[in-house]
Amino acid sequence: MVAVPDNQAAGASRARLLRLGAMALGLLLFIYVARSVGPQKLGETLVTGLTQGAMIALVALGYTMVYGVLKLINFAHSEVFMMGAYVGVFVLGAIGIANPLLSFVCTIVVAIIGSSLLGITVERIAYRPLRGRGRGALVRVTPLVTALGVSVLLQNAAQLFFSARYRSYPQLITGSMDIPGVGPVGKSRVIILVVAVLVMIGLELIVKKTWFGKAMRALSSNEEAARLMGVRTSWVISSTFALGSSLAAVGAVLFCIDQSSVYPTMGTAIGTRAFVAAVLGGIGSIPGAMLGGLLLGVLGELVKLSSYSGSIDAPVFVVLIAVLLVRPAGLLGSNRAEKV
């Protein structure tokens, strides 16, 4: 253990105090809310919040993974999500819902393929040519503006090709099941939660156990060194885009089966929340995105019970600002100083 200079130690203990204080405040607030709404309603709300959060987390993972390897905020990610939803609606329209399970699996698989192809294409055409070009701030700013441009382009393309009509998915999964202690919960919600958790476990295994995951983490910590060690960085970057887009596609199909119509601007609403979730959890951190998503989901549902139900985003952003004041890198983000 290396000796720590005094002022740094004092800073660390103050940060710890702040963190403890914030946690205590959060806990008190939660107890207050729980007491005022009663256990039955609280259980219902928590389950709804967790499913909502799981979907936000699936999208947030895409933002955070791309940021991890490229330090780029991929604003086009919400549009990849939207395109995944469109692929889903077309697949379901083509094969029908005579066999719900088969339709569900087919839809998810085709949506994953479509979205990852789109994600890879966007990276190839729009981001890769910019990599390593420009100087100083431009290295970051140019791709960021390009990402915004791609987002607008994809939205308009969707409108041109698919029209601005709101399309709703056929009701693939209906009915509800009883969960002890909570009461009836829609079957689609249960399936969302299960699928999302499985996907996240799968992702964790990929990142921690496979060669690709190792390469991705290597790239994230130092691109130059990773390349010198023989990692084919452009292949890893493409695969990261594919993986992130696949998660968005799964999220999109689940989202539409359960609660949303499909339309060209549908990515914006969930995209904003997912981006906030990624920042809240610590952008670049995979468990952080999951945690951020779940927190936002539950928080959003609790706000719906209050009289401020009409503006969920306000408390969400208050929490974001509060967390960033205490922990600028987000809940699980690394505080490592960046070499510029």
Binding site: K41, E44, T48, G49, Q259, T268, E301, G310, D313
Partner: peptide, 17 residues
């Protein structure tokens, strides 16, 4: 008297309320 945020898609909590 319940308002919801525009672009909201999950109405379950509102509806049970």
């Amino acid at each position: 008297d319940k308002g919801y945020q525009k672009n909201e898609t999950n109405f379950t909590t509102y509806l049970s309320e």
